[in-house]
Design a protein around this nucleic acid. Structure first.
Lengths: 233, 233
DNA sequence: TATAATAAATGTATTTATTACATTTATATA
DNA sequence: TATATAAATGTAATAAATACATTTATTATA
């Protein structure tokens, strides 16, 4: 760093900065990712994460929120920074760094028309098409991050409907970790967290007996999210 | 995202991008942070993290490496991305986003002359001066990150000398978490990780009895760092 | 040369969490 | 009323975390 003054900023290189959203959604069966076919050259027509350049008068965070709202119609979505991808030649279009930001949404809440209008498609993790640039890497990193997050914070609030069953919460975890858990132990563990409120109602869409619906206790949930847990499955 | 082609990139805003290093060091007693007095306006003369603008022809990672080497003389330092700070008005100098990157170094390895030449100073966490811009926030976030990292990966390799004692490893953890641990349980737990090799030598600088020196078993250490642990203290 | 002072090293019993594992229950439909 | 289906439940065994006090090796000093 030099000792020049005042117009030091003016002498520096300016660079394109983008953000790409890794949009996770859950439909009570499995976790999915929203991607679309890129519209701009190079690689127009190839599968891509959904993103945008960051404008000079908006924050990096708001750029991602704008993208999310444009595509899904949703506001106040849970988003978290993943990582910056800043290598010199990651984008043949021009020197451009991107900030990966992942979002967690309830698929049922989306504005389907908007999503379809943009040609965006939900893919299961094990059926993801190949993506442009370093986007496969972003997805892989986001999954690692999501799994890590799930191990020290409760998850589900952002991905499940207001009322949900324990079997569907288990499906969420199984889908994130891509493995099966023992239902007795899962139930025991999740109930021990003391963040669920059991309702009288049952959901009978997936069995004759029906499964009791639960809600998250938002206060306790947030408290745990803040304090951190040790959730090993 | 629009559907224009080819020179779409050319129409986008370019933005200044910087990186700021949160440089953690350990001197066998406590963990410290390296800061210096900022040289450029605005806020010249105020305490600041050490950083640089990212040049068009270097990666974000290499910009941080360059800073580290310039200041400490060290190469191949452990560095990890923390977060992007991208709000519109974080820097009154100009619209500028910064990538926080934290480094772990052994203080004893530094090139003291270089460090002093730059007017950089090591501060204990509880004695840190107030920093410019959002740098206090970066430090706070880096600490949270470091504690999180320490809970799922072994740490110490990058911060301790090649040979070290268990009491000094404990001091490192205590310094990071800013609390005391029971020495019997700490020893039990760290030995159970099976990443230490006990040497015949003793270090007698801090007691008459002397404490046995240990080395990390790099292979096992890396394997654990990769696989992840559950290190709760 | 014996004694005091200092930090290092060590073990155990108790509590808590994790794991593995199989049966019964409620309900809709045939 | 029998059948099929997923939901709900409990326990014993093992492993991990915690709380806690004494002995040891050595140097410096009386």
């Amino acid at each position: 760093m030099d000792t020049k003054q005042l117009n030091y900023y003016a002498e520096q290189d300016k660079i394109l900065i983008a953000t790409d959203c890794i949009i996770f959604g859950f439909d009570n069966q499995s976790i999915k990712l929203l991607v679309f076919k890129r519209r701009i050259a190079p690689f127009a027509g190839k599968w891509s994460l959904i993103g945008s350049f960051v404008k000079k008068d908006e924050s990096v965070k708001n750029a991602a929120k704008r993208v999310l709202t444009d595509i899904t119609g949703l506001e106040n979505v849970f988003m978290k920074q993943l990582k910056v991808y800043g290598s010199v030649d990651r984008d043949p279009g021009d020197r451009c760094i991107t900030v990966g930001q992942y979002a967690l949404i309830r698929i049922e809440d989306q504005d389907i028309e908007l999503v379809e209008k943009h040609g965006a498609v939900w893919y299961d993790l094990d059926k993801m098409p190949d993506l442009v640039l370093d986007h496969n890497q972003l997805v892989e990193d986001a999954l690692v991050q999501l799994r890590l997050k799930a191990s020290y914070q409760p998850i589900g609030f952002e991905l499940l409907p207001e009322k949900f069953t324990i079997p569907s919460l288990q499906k969420l975890y199984e889908s994130i970790y891509q493995k099966q858990f023992d239902n007795r132990n899962f139930r025991k563990k999740i109930i021990a967290l003391d963040i669920l409120t059991k309702l009288e109602e049952k959901d009978k869409t997936s069995s004759k007996k029906g499964a009791y619906l639960y809600k998250f206790n938002r206060k306790k949930y947030d408290k745990l999210a803040d304090a951190g847990i040790n959730f090993k499955l």
